[in-house]
Design a protein around this nucleic acid. Structure first.
Length: 420
RNA sequence: GUGAGUGUCGCCUAGAGGUCUAAGGCGCCAGGUUGUGGCCCUGGAGAACGAGGGUUCAAAUCCCUCCACUCACCCCA
């Protein structure tokens, strides 16, 4: 006999088994609550999109576009990509359906699988799940504050502790130019001491120089000019108002001039929420303003801001903090039956109970009563209905309370009332 | 893409050249008198030891290759 090796979930993917589901349902329920609380409405975009949507929006020089996209050609020859992030599809939908005709800003949220081709490790997968939300069509800092407040409230409502909010402003198209020039100049002076990655960053994507973690680059990054010192007067005003609102809301934030975020479309406000003892890939969520993106995708100039969080990392942290998770509801009633006639009655009974809205599970047929009750017990049922030969004859059933071991015989017509 | 570690029944683990036709715990299945669970007891099913190749009289145990998983770097959620 040949033994074929079993299939495994593809690298970087995983199954969410029933015993894990409580975490996911819990988080999703918190997502729905928070979004409802702030007036965000759900949107679901397709899993794949035109490849160019991402290369145009996320940025050619980003890792995501450069090496992490799951791209394929369909039979019609179109290049499609499994979405590597959530914002671009939402913007596409906003434009495609003319959502700019709604009162602005439009507040949308999503809960979606995200795909990135990377080497998996703790808290990092090739298919992972994000929840995110976007407020499109308003550039006012009140919206920045709202989006950050909402993220903060979301995490605290999950009772996750020890989080920090990192905040920065990277300016707009205009003022960033001067900043980048200063940054490049600073780095060029010490270019010989840079790591090889930073040498290419200097040419291709200078902002990213700041989040290099190589020891040799730290002093250079620390002493680098700060984007907040180069903000134009409008960006400066925007940022200081945001900080004012955050103080008003009593949201503790840490200014982090090295926070730049990985995607090219960000402008002005960027922020990230991390566990206190943050490591390289421990960020729970992040976001920022992207005032130019809608226009770059072919719309009218439209300011917007959004946030995204990784569900796997939330689960990871909930486990780490052994947070209490509400259990998922399960049927409490188990129907045991002994003998062919009883089995028939059990099948009918189960159907009529369910019709009345009572969840019930029927025991596997042809097993001893002992075995059936053993199963009821190990599956945690609190109540069992037992039908045997005698009960069939007398048109009754035994109702057994599995926690107290009390039981009584009930005529079938009264059973439903007894169980409610 | 780079580096390190790991790979024995569903899960956890023992085992370090012959005692292994692989052991234990959990879980699963069945039984412990007549139609009744949870504790206990008994029994059972279940792995040719990731795959392939070598060394050896002899390999789960040594060597090589591959694969998978984990962790780290890069970067992000």
């Amino acid at each position: 006999m040949e033994k074929i090796s079993l299939y495994q979930a593809p690298r970087g993917t995983f199954d969410i088994l029933p015993k894990e589901q409580a975490y996911w349902r819990y988080i999703e329920q918190k997502v729905v609550n928070i979004c409802q609380l702030y007036g965000y409405e759900r949107i679901d975009a397709p899993v794949f999109e035109d490849s160019q949507l991402f290369s145009r929006s996320v940025g050619k020089e980003t890792d995501i576009v450069d090496k992490q996209m799951y791209t394929f050609k369909d039979r019609g020859g179109n290049s499609l990509t499994l979405r590597p992030e959530g914002t671009a599809p939402v913007c596409r939908a906003y434009l495609e359906h003319g959502l700019h005709n709604l009162p602005q800003p439009v507040r949308l949220y999503y809960l979606a699988a995200i795909f990135r081709y990377e080497r998996p490790q703790s808290g990092r997968y090739r298919q992972h799940h994000q929840f995110g939300y976007e407020a499109i069509g308003d550039g006012d800092p009140t919206l920045d504050a709202e989006v950050i407040d909402m993220a903060w409230r979301f995490f605290t409502s999950l009772s996750l502790r020890h989080l920090s909010l990192q905040l920065n402003s990277i300016g707009c198209k205009k003022c960033r130019r001067q900043y980048l020039a200063a940054l490049k100049e600073h780095y060029a002076r010490s270019s010989k001491n840079l790591c090889s990655d930073c040498k290419t960053r200097l040419k291709r994507n200078p902002l990213r120089l700041l989040d290099c973690k190589k020891r040799q680059c730290q002093p250079i990054a620390d002493s680098a000019p700060r984007s907040t010192d180069y903000l134009c007067s409008e960006c400066e005003k925007h940022f200081s108002q945001l900080k004012r609102y955050l103080k008003l809301l009593k949201i503790p934030f840490t200014l982090n001039h090295r926070l730049v975020r990985g995607l090219d479309y960000y402008t002005r406000t960027v922020f990230e929420i991390q566990p206190e003892k943050a490591t390289a890939q421990s960020a729970l969520g992040g976001g920022g303003r992207y005032d130019d993106l809608i226009e770059e995708l072919g719309g009218k100039p439209t300011p917007a801001i959004g946030f995204g969080a990784g569900l796997e990392r939330i689960v990871l942290n909930l486990k780490k903090e052994s947070a209490p998770i509400p259990p998922l509801p399960r049927p409490q009633l188990f129907i045991a039956h002994l003998g062919d006639a009883a089995t028939e009655d059990a099948v009918k009974l189960a159907a009529s109970l369910r019709k009345a809205g009572i969840a019930a599970v029927i025991a596997p047929a042809g097993k001893s009563l002992k075995s059936q009750l053993r199963q009821a017990n190990s599956l945690g049922f609190t109540k069992a209905v037992i039908i045997g030969e005698d009960e069939v004859k007398s048109g009754t059933a035994i109702v057994r309370d599995m926690t107290t071991s009390q039981q009584k015989t009930v005529p079938l017509p009264q059973l439903e009332r007894e169980l409610k």
